[in-house]
Simulated assay, not measured.
Amino acid sequence: MRHERSARLLAATLIATIVGGCGRVGGSSSGASATVDIDGSSTVFRISEAAREGYSAINPKVTVVVDNHGTGGGFGHYLNGEIDIIDASRPANPDEEAKAKAQGIPWTRFNVGTDGITLVVNPENQFVKSLTVAQLKAIWEPGSKITTWKDVDPSWPARKIVFYSPDNDSGTFEYFTEAIVGKKKQQRDDVQPSSDDNTLVNGVAGDVDGLGYFGHAYFEANSNKLRAIPIQNGADDAPVLPSEATILDQSYKPLSRPLFIYVKNSSMRRPAVLGFLKYYLENIVELATKGGYVPPTAEEREANRKALPADGDVSTPTAKDAA
Rank of each mutant, 00 (worst) to 15 (best):
A11L: 11
N168F: 08
P106I: 00
A32H: 12
T318Y: 12
N304L: 01
A217M: 02
A245L: 14
L308R: 02
T43M: 05
Q103R: 03
R159M: 08
K320C: 05
E302Q: 13
R305M: 07
S194F: 08
L200E: 00
P154D: 03
P239A: 10
G116S: 04
R257D: 09
K160I: 03
A34K: 15
A303M: 13
K264L: 14
S194D: 07
I139N: 07
T118M: 09
S33C: 13
K320Y: 14
V201W: 00
I261H: 14
G275D: 10
S194G: 11
S194T: 08
K160T: 14
T147Y: 08
S29W: 06
R46I: 03
G171K: 01
K290L: 10
Q126K: 12
A307H: 07
R305C: 01
A138G: 12
V314D: 11
R46L: 05
N168L: 12
G215A: 15
G40Q: 01
D209P: 06
A303H: 07
D237Q: 14
V162R: 15
M1C: 08
A272K: 08
T199C: 02
N265H: 11
A134N: 12
Q103L: 15
S165I: 03
G21V: 00
Y252Q: 14
L287P: 13
R8E: 00
A228L: 09
F127D: 04
G20V: 02
A245H: 11
L211C: 01
T246S: 15
P123W: 02
V65C: 09
F176A: 13
P60N: 03
V66L: 07
L10T: 12
F75C: 06
L136K: 12
N125T: 11
S194I: 02
V263S: 09
